[in-house]
């Protein structure tokens, strides 16, 4: 009845990054399997964003490997692969959702253009098809089709974030990195975004790594959770196990510090 997937989609092996004498993240290892959502929590400066950027190829780690199960050649270490190869991977198989939507969007280009551009980057050329697909994705992230030609500068914060998600997912990636995807949004907009992300993860069979400091967000979105402090992973496990029965002193402090609503 139970069978275990043979290969992880992403295998992080001893990733370490220093900023001078300061530790960014140290010796982080884990495997992520297809369809899994992993949350990374910890206070500011705990190294979670450094780790995310090392995994996504935005920062070169000082040591360690990030092995991704590529469609063409099976598991490859993305740290040692060539820059063009890594860039291709980040267009076809990976997506990166920034905390600030403006970092992940082109603010001078229309909403439809923002989504269409990603399709063109992987080879789409037929204008009608690109526009149809862009409109379809705007609809999936609940942006009205009448806004397709508007620039994101005219969008609200929540709409910008949903547009960023559409731009990222339109090419059908297999792994999504998210850096505080609901940070800075008001609570009702957060709920809508969470609902959207959960549906997309389930329906597209995505794997995702979500960095956040919001424990409620990880409880609803993540299957697994990693707690970081001072650049190191102090605890990891099933999300509800880490939140309901934290083992490490720091995780206990983190969980008990949340205000009850």
């Amino acid at each position: 009845m139970i069978h275990v997937d043979p290969l992880p989609l992403l295998s992080v092996q001893g990733v370490t990054k220093h900023y001078g004498a300061h530790i960014g993240c140290a010796d982080v290892s884990f495997d992520l399997y297809p369809g899994e959502v992993m949350g990374i929590v910890g206070e500011s400066g705990s190294g979670k964003s450094t780790l995310l950027n090392c995994m996504a190829g935005h920062l070169p780690p000082d040591a360690g490997g990030v092995v991704f199960d590529t469609r063409a050649d099976g598991p490859r270490d993305t740290v040692t692969m060539s820059e063009p190869e890594r860039r291709m991977l980040s267009r076809t198989d990976w997506a990166f959702v920034h905390q600030h939507a403006r970092d992940g969007l082109r603010m001078g280009v229309s909403a439809g253009g923002n989504v269409g551009e990603r399709l063109m980057a992987v080879g789409a050329r037929h204008y009608g098809d690109i526009r149809d697909k862009a409109t379809d994705w705007l609809d999936r992230v609940e942006i009205d089709a009448s806004r397709v030609d508007d620039r994101p500068t005219t969008f609200s914060g929540g709409m910008k974030q949903r547009l960023q998600i559409a731009r990222n997912l339109v090419t059908g990636p297999r792994l999504v990195f998210m850096d505080e995807p609901t940070g800075g949004l008001d609570v009702s907009v957060q709920a809508r975004l969470l609902d959207l992300l959960r549906g997309l993860v389930r329906d597209m069979g995505l794997s995702a790594i979500i960095v956040t400091h919001d424990l409620a967000v990880v409880r609803l979105l993540a299957d697994r959770l990693m707690v970081m402090k001072s650049g190191r992973v102090v605890e990891s496990g099933l999300t509800d196990q880490v939140l309901d029965d934290p083992q490490h002193a720091y995780s206990q402090l983190l969980v008990s510090s949340v205000l009850q609503v």
Partner: peptide
Amino acid sequence: EPREIIRLRREVLGYVSQFLRVVPRV
């Protein structure tokens, strides 16, 4: 491993707790 427990919970083991915990708006 966590993923074995996730699969177990999805397919084999159900749990009716006293409290409903859902994504708002669904």
